[in-house]
Amino acid sequence: MTSRDDIEHLIARIALRDQSAFSALYDATSKKLFGICLHVLDHRGEAEEVLQEVYIRIWHKADSYAVTGHSPMTWLITISRNLAIDKLRSRRAAMTTLDAEAVTIADARPGPEASAISRSEHSAMSACLEELDTNRADAVRRAYLDGDTYKDLAHRYDVPLNTIRTWLRRSLMTLRDCLTR
């Protein structure tokens, strides 16, 4: 297991264009980041494309890592998740006429309930999500991990679009209060 400090050090060396540090970072983190890409996209080919983009982004942005103040894994996860969501959105934009089908595909995945089993108990986020109504906690997870839009969520929970926004924003604020207390 590569420690947080090890990964941070690798990123610092990558900022100085150290290729051996880059391959070491790939070896230490690609399984985790590929898992995230695959989870969001649920499509191996697309996940592979995105994983490449992720590492190219890391190579070029390593110098700005420290400015974020993030832990190294937070930084890597955020890049991966965001690029995967971008890919997901561009796929969806390309198949807007097949909207209903897209929703069906999304439904076929194991839901947040299934992945909840292995959720780490010490994560403050998990603990605070537990305090929310189940549907609301799932909506937050679906937005972050599955790239659900307000439209997807409104459809899924069968509520009007404006209502879902108010509903989710309120949940996010409850979450924030819990996380900061």
Partner: peptide, 20 residues
């Protein structure tokens, strides 16, 4: 970003294909 990234902590690792 920091708070939400913890949601990804428990996503299972997947080995990418070697050619990648």
């Amino acid at each position: 970003e920091q708070q939400l990234a913890t949601l990804a902590e428990d996503i299972a690792e997947e080995t990418p294909p070697a050619h990648l």
